[in-house]
Amino acid sequence: MALQLGDPAPDFEAETTDGRIRFHDWIGDDWAVLFSHPRDFTPVCTTELGAVARLKSEFDRRGVKVAGISVDPIEEHRAWAGDIEETQGHALNFPLIADPDRTIADLYGMIHPNADETSTVRSVFVVGPDKRIKLSLTYPQSTGRNFDEILRAIDSLQLTARYAVATPADWSQGDDVIILPSIPDAEARERFPGGWRALKPYLRLTSQPKA
């Protein structure tokens, strides 16, 4: 059965370009992003890994660890790293996980036989400090991911985990948020002393709570 939101993220041990890790121990008390790429030495993957390396400080600022994974062996990962730095201008600064026997890919459902029977699709899993899956995305091999959007989604996940709010369409950091419909007005007045704009009884907009 495919992993669903709220499911425990399967634990595993694996070799990476930063040494051997046990996934849950590596996450610790942080958030994590696990993202797969189909193959080493492929063009879209090269640009994606360069993009994540460029954005590493943004993930760090949010307390998020990132790790890439494919079904290639560790030797190919290390050889490919030079190409990534040369063509993208950013050296790898996060672990790439080797999964040549497809154990992890099978655990996370990263192989989609109707797309490719041997390579992983572009899966993304955001895992919370409780080691449960908070978000999952699946892209075909031909479509590169937008990691700025993944950061935006993480901002929403972290905010809504702390406060009784949801984020509207196209929300970004600092925009107004929605008070959850399950919060009655009397309780909302205590939680959100700055008030809100009620477009409808179920649609109450308020300023983003401050951390």
Rank of each mutant, 00 (worst) to 15 (best):
Ala2Arg: 13
Leu3Asp: 00
Gln4Ile: 01
Leu5Glu: 10
Ala9Asn: 09
Asp11Phe: 05
Asp18Val: 05
Gly19His: 03
Arg20Cys: 12
Arg22Thr: 08
Trp26Lys: 14
Ile27Asn: 02
Asp30Leu: 10
Pro38His: 05
Val44Lys: 05
Cys45Asn: 04
Cys45Met: 00
Glu58Asp: 04
Arg61Trp: 09
Val64Ser: 02
Gly68Asp: 02
Ser70Gln: 08
Ser70His: 13
Val71Ala: 09
Pro73Thr: 12
His77Asp: 07
Trp80Asp: 01
Glu85Cys: 14
Glu86Val: 10
His90Arg: 09
Ala91Leu: 13
Pro95Ile: 08
Ile97Pro: 02
Ile104Asn: 03
His112Trp: 10
His112Thr: 10
Pro113Phe: 12
Pro113Gly: 09
Asn114Asp: 15
Val126Thr: 03
Val126Lys: 03
Pro129Val: 04
Asp130Lys: 13
Gln141Cys: 07
Gly144Tyr: 01
Phe147Ala: 00
Glu149Leu: 13
Leu151Pro: 00
Ser156Val: 10
Leu159Pro: 05
Asp170Gln: 06
Asp170Lys: 04
Leu180Lys: 12
Ser182Leu: 11
Ala186Ser: 07
Arg189Trp: 05
Arg189Tyr: 00
Phe192Glu: 01
Ala198Met: 13
Leu199Trp: 11
Lys200Arg: 15
Pro201Asp: 10
Leu205Arg: 03
Thr206Lys: 00
Gln208Ser: 14
